[in-house]
Amino acid sequence: MKQADFVNIVMPFKDKVFRLAKRLLVSREEAEDATQEILLKLWKNKEKIEDYKNVEAFSMTMTKNFCLDRLKSKQAQNLKIVHSNYTDSSASLQRQVEVGDSLNWVSKIIEDLPEQQKIIVQLRDIEQYDFAEISKMLEMNETAIRVALSRARKTIRQKLTNTHNYGVK
């Protein structure tokens, strides 16, 4: 397989990989690194790629696992994270009050969701995969995905309603 063939296979979903990584890792730089890592891994295994039935789903699963590992090792390696979370949330809250950017609000709300729900919201509402594909990517059954999605959407609705009401008052 040549570089051009590989790029043709990877092109359609590299942005999706990046967005999922960014949703989970938050920072743009980290997401870029993760995406690069995933693409390089795919490139290294390019001989096997042709055997995979669904390269895209496979890559998304890889991305999910990679990012979750990243998060785990990050939390394990420094205690500072507790502290930085602390300052970060207050800083962004302040910013949100100042700027009043409602899109940032939504992003912040999604950031606060549990990782599993974050991934599902990302895959469903943003990337618009159907449930069969998501269940393949996450190795979960569709019912469990629907339940998690419903929970996530209700949490988001709850928080949005609250902020909206505050905004009105």
């Binding site: 990046f18 995406t35 693409l39 490139w43 409602s102 899109l103 609000w105 992003s107 943003i126 902020t163």
Partner: peptide
């Protein structure tokens, strides 16, 4: 229903984010 607006706007805008970095694809 106005409070749903930012949610769906966010979904649409989040969809447009792109990965622009080049990946150095070289044989090891």
């Amino acid at each position: 229903l106005a409070h749903y607006k930012p949610l769906f706007q966010f979904f649409s805008s989040a969809q447009e984010e792109q990965y622009t970095k080049d990946v150095p694809l070289k044989t090891t």
